[in-house]
Amino acid sequence: MAVDTTVTNDLRKEIVKCNDKQQLVNLRQQLDTFEQSIDMTGVTTFEQKRIKQLIDGLYKILDNKQIQLSMNRFEFIGDPIPPRHSKNQIKLIEKQDLAETNSGSAVFELLNESIDISETRYVLITSSTNSIISTDKLSPPPSIHMRNTTDSICTLTSKGAIFIHNVRNSILVLSCHQARLHNIHNSIIIVDKVKNNRIIIEDCSGLVINQQIEVDDFNHPTKESINPHYKVIDQDSLNHITQRISNCSVEDLRVIIGKCFELTQ
């Protein structure tokens, strides 16, 4: 299926010039709908990769725009002070952005935290280090973007797509319409539910993935040889891992992740 570049070009222009959070939400919905309408049946691996890069590029622009619009604004108080008066300082007063609670995406940056995310907005996790993350399974967000994650356990449920970039030494439990993983290393991937039981990976290594899941690896498109970038875990080991991570605390996170990897050897 050929992708209509007129649609993607128009979306790109609208995202770049967008200065309103609610409008950005609408643009994300348009991109989600467009992305889900793409049928990869019969499409060559090369073309699949090109389409993925095109869509991922648009989502990246969206995420950056969301961060830009979500940043707190600052206001100078008083007249400007010339540099020679070094003892005087310009005061900055942070203004609360009330619109953030009403529209747009929910943006998270996590360090040594355990958090249950209950959001009906789009979820953007910009970074996570030594943290435990879960989203509401009964009322999940429309889509999730997560990047820059290390030493974390993430149980993510989304009505739509989950896009994950730059992850190391973590355990990901996913339930979604579509899952795309880029630059994921030395991590355990447990897919509870995904459309067509298929996930897409690129630039990944050292992955452990549960059974019954088809993996489209853009760096190893052939099915005629063993994929060096991931291996499949047996059901018994998977059950033990699921049990271990169910009652994990932040303090024990690295130890538990290490023991889970031992079960995959």
Rank of each mutant, 00 (worst) to 15 (best):
D203S: 11
D116Q: 12
E109K: 13
T33S: 13
S105L: 05
F46I: 10
K17H: 02
L24Y: 01
I93Q: 12
I201E: 03
P228S: 10
D56W: 02
I164H: 07
V191A: 02
S131H: 02
E94D: 12
C248N: 11
Q66I: 03
T6L: 10
I115D: 04
N247D: 10
E75R: 12
I51E: 12
E35I: 01
L174N: 13
I38D: 05
I90V: 12
I55Q: 00
S205P: 01
S237Y: 02
S70Y: 03
I164C: 12
F76S: 07
D116T: 14
I133F: 02
M40A: 08
L238V: 08
S37V: 02
I93C: 06
I55S: 01
Q29A: 11
K21N: 05
E14I: 00
R50Y: 07
E224G: 11
G78D: 10
N247W: 01
H185I: 14
H220W: 13
R244H: 10
A99E: 14
T126L: 10
V191S: 02
I144H: 06
V250Y: 11
K13L: 09
H177I: 02
K223W: 08
I190Y: 14
I93Y: 04
K159P: 00
D63L: 04
K52Q: 14
G42R: 11
K65F: 06
S205I: 00
N169M: 10
N239D: 14
S249T: 15
F74K: 09
I226G: 02
C154I: 03
I209R: 02
I213S: 06
H145N: 09
N26S: 11
D32Q: 07
T149S: 14
N196F: 04
R12M: 13
V16K: 10
V208F: 07
N247I: 01
H85P: 00
F34K: 06
Q96E: 13
I133W: 06
L181D: 06
S187K: 04
E100Y: 05
I188T: 09
S127R: 14
R50H: 10
N102V: 04
S37Y: 00
E94N: 12
Q96T: 14
I226V: 13
S225H: 09
